[in-house]
Amino acid sequence: MAGILVYSEVRDGRLKKTSREVIAIAQKLAGSVGGDVAAVAVDAPYNTEVHTAALEAAIKERQPSVVLFPGTSNGRDLAPRIAARLNVGVASDVDRLEWVDGKLRARRPVYSGKAFATVDVTATPAIATCRPNAFPADEAAADPQVVTLPAPALEPKAKVVETRTPETGELMISEADIIVSGGRGLKEASNFSYIRDLAHAIGGAVGASRATVDAGWIDHQHQVGQTGRVVTPNLYIAAGISGAIQHLAGMSSSKHIVAINKDPEAPIFRVADLGVVGDLFQILPALTEEVKKAKTH
């Protein structure tokens, strides 16, 4: 019983950033947990049943103390399945991990980030899924070695028959370092161009409040908040968003927050590091220009 197993995902021949983040925290923990870090990837496209079986075999063989997953769609699909098979517990979506008295101690946001719960995962192996962007990965470092797990021959009951990519070229908010979000202050769907232009200039993803999603101005994939995505980018820029509690729940743990709103009393200013009281239709174009200038210097 030793070491840490990391379920990793490879895209276009490289480890995904979320997987590198998990490997980085695993390497930090390894000293106290004891044993090595083994990053494993299954040699087959994602399928719940196939990947569960492949990973189960690797866990039985290596007997790790801890198994970590990236908190991606697939990581979060797989971790509970593996845990139920092994009769152990999972801490999901964790943003802090420690090894305390021989146990994995994890902190995780609950009530959409309105509070943080700390739990000990006591059964062995201890399983956790790691929130994207919560654990810094060394961007420059070479990819760690990944052990390829053979895919067992089994006929899954559920199969992917097609993958559809609706909005090509757009960065997804869940993994983005920078998010530019728009709210009802944009007045109409076509004005999302103000948000897109800035997002494009700065290299960020487009986010949205629920009001704009419900109005049909933008797809639900972009919604930030309690019933959208909970995000923790390095920089979150909110324009024309009032800052309802359900929106704040999804973004208030962002590392740096800029808010642009014409109402000085808007609740969004309570979480903003930099608040700009003004008209987004004037400030966003000026900001986009300024960003472009900064990028060329």
């Binding site: 152990v88 517990g89 999972v90 309105k114 943080f116 739990v119 000990d120 995962v121 208030s252």
Partner: peptide, 10 residues
């Protein structure tokens, strides 16, 4: 299997 330790506000 998962034991509560504490809960706190951000």
């Amino acid at each position: 299997r998962v034991v509560f330790v504490s809960i706190e506000l951000p």
